[in-house]
Design a protein around this nucleic acid. Structure first.
Lengths: 143, 143
DNA sequence: GATTAGTCATTGAGTTGTCAAATATATTAG
DNA sequence: CTAATATATTTGACAACTCAATGACTAATC
């Protein structure tokens, strides 16, 4: 069942692996957040001033600005993130992580760590192996 | 901005890369199908008898059986796939690719090939490099 | 300093999935 | 055989996005 184009095959496997892996992170729901929420908290936590523009957030996680708006809205409502204005430019609004947000982030990080470790053995990372092998491990070939 | 857990970091990058890459395949819409539809047609086209159970389809593309039902339904309506019964077991229903389905698949394959090649240079595949490098190429680091 | 063009963010409407429950059938154990 | 259990698929309700259009600014040009 050979596919001629290896680039395409790799991408097909990427799609499958991502689908499988992302569902494992549903366990983050015990902290009241999803994987994308976790990603946002992670980025904000490590950003200078603990805040980022929505557009930067979008670029960094690979979503559209629209998606970021929809993700951040409930995080504001539940108090994990606050909205900050930019003095110079009234168009931009920063998302800033709150103390509560940091607490939730740190708790969720433990869960995320253990999920990640259970999916990808640490020994794998250290050896920096090729992709095909990793994908095999993460969900097998698509065909 | 070091993340302690490399497994987690890899998975964060996987999420981003998949988000970025999958949107590039929106160009398949000129053939009237999405990337997941393309994956289904691909699997059916290469399956023995050009058909698969829904549950096999689900396992192979990494989605849930529920998701497969929702994906295949419109493909049946537009005549790219037909439903086949199993004589021995009345619970299972095969999805089988039609002649029209194969035509669309072959056309879409050309587009998919060129998208894949534009994203991942063939030279990369041949050398079988480590993941970090590939992800860098596909969307950069998440942080 | 008034147009014009660009940028940041949000919204309405739609798509593509998910989970949990339901339906229908098949298999196993007593 | 019949009851209990397991398997294949579908459905209702919902979540997490997308695109295209819009609003509200800012910056560039003349």
């Amino acid at each position: 069942m050979a596919i001629k184009n290896s680039s395409l095959k790799l991408i097909m496997n990427l799609a499958k692996v991502q689908a499988v892996v992302s569902r494992k992170f549903d366990r983050l729901s015990v902290h009241g957040i999803g994987f994308s929420d976790f990603l946002i908290l992670h980025l904000l936590h490590h950003a200078p001033g603990e805040q980022l523009r929505r557009i930067e957030l979008a670029e960094k996680i690979g979503l559209t600005p629209s998606g970021v708006t929809r993700l951040v809205m409930p995080l504001e409502k539940s108090g994990l993130v606050t909205r900050q204005a930019n003095e110079r430019d009234a168009r931009v609004s920063y998302a800033k992580i709150t103390a509560t947000g940091k607490r939730i982030y740190n708790e969720a990080m433990k869960t995320a760590d253990s999920i990640a470790d259970s999916i990808i053995p640490i020994t794998y990372i250290e050896k920096d192996r090729p992709i095909a092998e990793l994908f095999q491990m993460l969900g097998g070939d698509i065909d």
